[in-house]
């Protein structure tokens, strides 16, 4: 994970979103050790205090926990992770639908458009033609 955050929005929130996505996808497995604040800040090229704030918030939200002597870990609570895995696509769909409607598309037409698109995709998920 590299930097390139949107400087127009609070970075700490973007970090939280990214880490939640990573947990939901499984890139950060349940129980996996999370790198130190310093290392993460360096990886993402952000201020360590900002990174600390994000990690603290994630702990508060229940996605991370701290073992006093050994560091931070992703939650082992599989239910929480599964719930997250379900929520992320939900959020993506929500953003997508809002955008389509904003564009002027009627809500009932959306599923059809989506099916069309998926039919045109090849085995690897790429769009092979219009």
């Amino acid at each position: 994970m590299r930097g390139d955050f949107d400087n127009n929005q609070p970075i700490y929130q973007q970090i939280i979103d990214r880490m939640i996505a990573a947990i939901a996808k499984g890139d950060l497995a349940p129980g996996a050790k999370v790198a130190s604040v310093r290392d993460l800040a360096l990886q993402h090229n952000v201020n360590p205090n900002t990174m600390q704030k994000s990690l603290a918030k994630l702990e508060e939200m229940g996605y991370l926990y701290t073992e006093r002597t050994s560091g931070r870990y992703v939650t082992q609570n599989l239910a929480v992770v599964e719930q997250l895995a379900a929520r992320v696509p939900e959020k993506i769909i929500g953003d997508f639908v809002a955008q389509m409607i904003d564009f002027g598309m009627a809500a009932p037409d959306i599923p059809g458009r989506v099916s069309d698109y998926i039919e045109r995709m090849d085995y690897n998920g790429k769009n092979i033609g219009n």
């Binding site: 949107d6 400087n7 127009n8 609070p10 970075i11 700490y12 201020n47 704030k53």
Partner: peptide, 15 residues
Amino acid sequence: DVEKIREEKGMSLDQ
């Protein structure tokens, strides 16, 4: 605080 600026003004520091 820079993050506070981003939150309150909705823009980057550069902007």
